[in-house]
Amino acid sequence: MDQHGVRGRYGRSMAVASGWYGTAIAAVAVGTTSVPSAPRDDCAAWFSCLSPGESLVFVGLVWGTPVLLGLLGVTALVAALVVRVLPSAVLAGTTSAALGVGVCAAVYLGRS
């Protein structure tokens, strides 16, 4: 019974929402690293000559992980409301991910 109730749907919609974030991150990582960039000849400054893989790890650690954790937190709150309205876990997870990104983007843009 638990698997089909709101609680079970909540878990599955959070899995779907996490899948969206994973897909988006993977697509951005693959897309940006597949674009060749001009070789830099001035490597005097720190972090000025990172390889695509290195810069990906750097951006992920410094910027990506906190943002992703924040997004997941907001999404978890949104999903708790959305699963009560939408009967499908896939639809609820997708909507929560979209709303989570929307809310975070609105807060970020409104703040700066």
Binding site: A24, A27, V35
Partner: peptide, 26 residues
């Protein structure tokens, strides 16, 4: 099949669009 569509197609489209709007060093 369903999840291949749900995640695979947006993945391909996003990768393609990122490449399309980028200015690569060629």
């Amino acid at each position: 099949l369903f999840f291949a569509w749900l995640y695979g197609v947006p993945f391909l489209l996003l990768v393609g669009l990122i490449r399309r709007v980028s200015r690569p060093y060629t």
